[in-house]
């Protein structure tokens, strides 16, 4: 039976002559290799496992796809579960990519919160100025990518109120954070404006302890623990994605819960 896709008039074979060199350069063995690995490793969408860089690139592409889907599904008005005060763990759990003995406490008297990027009023903030802003308390779960979690009581300035106060461009795409220990993190604006996202200065009834981010840390109910930078010293609003420490090694950038 004649294929319905067969063109009525076959193309002129002479066009092959124009590309003969290119056709010769196609290495048949490589085509076979590629075909075999595609068959054997459908999980890795056809990449050659003998080239770790290509495996990495494939996994990162899937991670980025995953991140885009999470951003698409994110509901800026949906609140994460909250809990009674009786369930709060006190003291909270310490975590960093280094040991607690290496924590360098921040001097609250000298500390300033620097602002940069698409922000109208870039004057730096002191601890007292931030504490004078309207506060909000959230009892939410901290979920770590490592598999553990705990319920904590965080108080501070709703991040949306802070961004509005400093005249940040709320239509910008990203908010970035720099920390006293060199940590960097960036989040999408929708998550930054979520009602439960806080610039936290207190835990339980006390001022935030040194190992937990004194004087200021980000606390979000909608993202994994590593997107909650501690000891924040600078905030940047930008349309170009600011640095994020865990983005490069392959962690989910969106890291939604």
């Amino acid at each position: 039976m004649r294929s319905p896709f067969r063109p009525a008039a076959p193309p002129d074979p002479a066009i092959l002559d124009d590309h003969r060199r290119l056709i010769r350069s196609l290495q048949r063995r490589r085509l076979i290799q590629g075909g075999l690995s595609l068959g054997a490793l459908t999980m890795l969408t056809g990449c050659d496992v003998r080239r770790p860089a290509s495996v990495q690139a494939a996994l990162l592409a899937i991670r980025d796809l995953n991140d885009s889907l999470q951003a698409l599904l994110f509901d800026p008005n949906k609140l994460a579960p909250t809990y009674p005060a009786s369930m709060v763990l006190n003291p909270p759990r310490f975590n960093a990519y280094y040991d607690v003995m290496k924590v360098k406490p921040v001097d609250g008297a000298k500390w300033r919160l620097e602002l940069s990027g698409l922000i109208g009023d870039k004057r730096p903030w002191t601890v007292e100025q931030i504490e004078a802003l309207p506060q909000r308390t959230e009892i939410i779960k901290h979920v770590c990518v490592e598999g553990w979690d705990y319920i904590g009581q965080w108080s501070g300035v709703p991040f949306r109120a802070f961004l509005e106060r400093v005249g940040a461009d709320l239509s910008a795409r990203y908010v970035g954070f720099h920390c006293a220990d060199g940590y960097t993190s960036s989040i999408d604006m929708a998550s930054a404006l979520h009602p439960q996202t806080l610039l936290a200065t207190r835990y339980g009834d006390d001022v935030l302890g040194d190992p937990f981010g004194y004087p200021l840390r980000l606390r979000m109910s909608t993202k994994l623990g590593y997107k909650n930078p501690k000891w924040v010293t600078a905030i940047e609003v930008n349309n170009v994605r600011p640095d994020d420490m865990w983005d490069k090694p392959g962690y989910s950038w969106f890291a939604g819960l």
């Binding site: 890795l44 494939a58 996994l59 796809l65 995953n66 770590c144 490592e146 962690y251 989910s252």
Partner: peptide, 15 residues
């Protein structure tokens, strides 16, 4: 094709 790769992607991580 994507789903198993997603699993691989996340299970290989540790902070």
């Amino acid at each position: 094709i994507f789903l198993p790769a997603l699993l691989l992607n996340t299970s290989a991580l540790a902070q």
